[in-house]
Nucleic acid binder design. Structure first.
Lengths: 295, 295
DNA sequence: GCTCGGCATTCCGTCCAGTGGAACGTGTTC
DNA sequence: GAACACGTTCCACTGGACGGAATGCCGAGC
């Protein structure tokens, strides 16, 4: 049904204890929708969540009344447009996307390849936006989908420039092999991240998808912490990574500067919240100041 | 704080009866976040929803545990990235956006102006996607925001080509005046829609925002029902609407054809669900076949 | 420095909304 | 036409949810 399964594999819905609170149960139903599910039946939802059928039925009726879920053509349930609209109100993604779009467009226009805006989410790279066109190499990524950080150009930047804690967790989570070229040993990954720091941009040479390479550059906030990354992704034979690197870096640099400018005017909401509080506010990239210098 | 207020005014949160069910109350808290709210305090959320503070507090804790809401830097609550990701799973918007993006990019590249992908939502036009760049005229629209159908190029297409029922409801809802040029009398609107049908594309001449004009063309499904529209929007003095119309129409036409092709392969989810069931499956545009013909 | 006001948070006795096994109706399969 | 799977409704039991009241925490103002 959907050829993009590989990116966001169906969560194997564990037989975890069903939460007791009604609210949590209702939200469980929303989570039951995987990234590639168009429409789910009551029976499926009941099975995936572990809720009794009558319970699921009743809660779904409420979700439908709310508007976040709608009934599909063939009796099933599907996530609705209202939910999409609600998601667009998330302040962090919105300000980032709006500020970044012009730069993404410039990169797209220059290359006509896939251009991504990504943030870190746990040990993954999460794609906030994707620009591509007819001439772009078809790839698996989607807006809202994720890939393991260790095998993507953007993800490696987060691991190289972010708090060491993140790298530790990523290694501990296991370096999944997506292609024969994926770096799966902690030692080689560390070496690769060191090279990433030296060069000032991230690379992915067929490490997440066969035949696909990418260049990425980091975006910093006013404290010089990495908050996002932009990348160009395309077919290995078409993309000249070394030639594109300066363009990506320049775009990321200008974007960083614009974000800093805006944030001093108090119009931005980019803070990570409490999630990465473990970070002591230090600027992890300060040891490599050339990341912010001219290329 | 946010210069885009005008697009999506803060909903005046009525003193409506608080729903009884726990789930509905929790979801009410999500709805309490307006399009421009970055962070809300417990007190604000309690006031907006009408929930008692302890209740709101408890429910919010559950929303935070779920991941859809996060605690901001200054103690408040805000919608999180997970919610954005969840919203991206809505199948209709996803398939449309993915199919349309290349065409939107082409239009952007040709004009460097704002390019929209919109669908109808009640009596509004809802923007599913927006492509713009540094050179584009700054306008108020955002992804996920809406404007009244009667004063937008895309919205007029929905009113002109969709079931008469929609037009009736829009008129009945009152034709809000956004600028001096907004069409606010039903008679003039009907005349304008007739012209829209004749020409085959929608126009907006400073009717939603002073100094801003737009051209739009409709996208049809396999039954020739309008399901979406694309538009180019920019400064009145810069945009030559008559010259751009063929480009927009061509893009919309190719996109329509692609969608029909894909839907016969069963890879698409574009149906309106039950919302517009009142529509008897008829093809409202059939009386104007040239909409699907060459320009 | 102290008070006051507004906020978030916790407590706890009352009570009603939520639960899910069972039963039913319907449409599809063998 | 029996068997099955699915969505839907029913209803007596029960434990989760409610919210007024009390507490703790800050920052502003005198």
């Amino acid at each position: 049904m959907d050829e993009h399964r590989a990116v966001d594999p169906q969560p194997p819905e564990p037989r975890a204890a069903v939460p007791k609170s009604v609210l949590a149960r209702g939200l469980l139903l929303l989570d039951a929708f995987g990234p590639s599910d168009a429409e789910l039946t009551l029976a499926e939802l009941s099975a995936r969540t572990g809720l009794a059928k009558p319970t699921a039925h009743r809660l779904l009726a409420q979700l439908v009344a709310w508007g976040g879920v709608e009934r599909g053509t063939r009796g099933g349930y599907r996530l609705s447009l209202s939910l999409f609209v609600l998601g667009q109100r998330a302040p962090r993604q919105r300000s980032l996307r709006e500020a970044a779009l012009p730069y993404l467009e410039d990169l797209y226009e220059a290359t006509h390849e896939n251009v991504h805006l990504a943030v870190q989410d746990g040990t993954d790279t999460l794609f906030l936006d994707k620009v591509s066109g007819r001439r772009s190499t078809p790839i698996v990524s989607r807006v809202g989908s994720r890939l393991p950080a260790h095998c993507t150009a953007t993800g490696k930047l987060f691991l190289a420039l972010g708090p060491p804690e993140h790298l530790r967790r990523a290694v501990q989570a296991g370096l999944a092999r997506l292609t024969p070229r994926t770096i799966i040993t902690p030692g080689m990954l560390r070496a690769d991240l060191a090279r990433t720091l030296d060069r000032g941009y991230g690379l992915n040479r067929e490490e997440s998808e066969v035949g696909v390479t990418a260049v990425a550059a980091p975006i910093f906030d006013h404290r010089r912490r990495v908050i996002a990354a932009v990348s160009i992704t395309g077919g290995s034979h078409r993309l000249d990574l070394e030639r594109l690197a300066p363009a990506v870096r320049t775009a990321a640099l200008s974007l960083s500067r614009e974000l800093v400018r805006e944030s001093t005017h108090g119009r931005l909401t980019l803070d990570e919240g409490d999630r990465n509080r473990s970070v002591g506010g230090a600027a992890y990239s300060e040891s490599r100041p050339h990341f912010l210098g001219a290329s």
